[in-house]
Amino acid sequence: MTDRNSRAWVYIPLSMMALFYLVPMFVMLNTGFKSFDEVSLRTMWDLPSSISFDNFVAAWDALAPNLWNSVRIVVPAATISSALGSLNGYVLARWRFRGANIVFPLLLFGMFIPYQAILIPLVDFMKNVGLVGGMWGLVIAHVVYGIPITTLIFRNYFATIPASLVEVARIDGAGIWQTYWRVMLPLAIPSFVVALIWQFTSAWNDFLFAVVLTDNTAWPVTVALNNLAGSQIIEWNVQMAASFMAAIPTLLVYIFLGRYFLRGMMAGSLKE
């Protein structure tokens, strides 16, 4: 019917939109690679005459401790919440018990709540247990509020595994834990990738929890970047380079593991 030639016009609007999506990236990098002498708001769109790393060096000096904080917060947060999610997903998909039909929706609702509705008790609670200021209070918050989405990712996956497999394991005498550990877990590696990178991305990009639960020694990169952008001292060109650095880890995850990232995103809107 329609051959490729008659569809060529499609590339025109698509490429125009592609430019729109790339504008912020262009500005970040174009500015980042200019030397301090060359940077000016008036020449924002001009290409650098030579490549310089002034801005990235300055941004690194300002953000390095916070980038490291982010890593130390996000890695345990993503790992623990994915592990918990895999257990929950397995139980909810495969083991019937009374009330399962109530537990799951209640769990899922936790994924959508505006965190402003739990912020005051959360900060109070963390103060009472001595976890405000450092990283661990924030890690715990990411883990707990990550449980709904990780549970959903694993439950959807485990529900596709034939019941007969679980049945065979049970006949072989494997208990619930054995079945999980020896049968289900090895099958669920792709779901682990989905859950881990989804949690990695959301925890890395979080601002609200971090700003109320950590102090300046434990600030992750989002809070530090926001403060840097709000200060009068740091020039806009350094802010651009800093923004790029803050975005790089999650961008790399997206570039190399985009397929899994998409699946997490779809699960998050209950579309899987």
């Binding site: 999506y21 912020p24 990009n205 989002t222 970047l225 952008a229 800093a242 803050a246 961008l251 997206y254």
Partner: peptide, 13 residues
């Protein structure tokens, strides 16, 4: 790809 970036980065740029 913008989905992978934080609102903070987006806001600053």
């Amino acid at each position: 790809f913008p989905m992978a970036i934080s609102f903070i980065v987006t806001g600053v740029v």
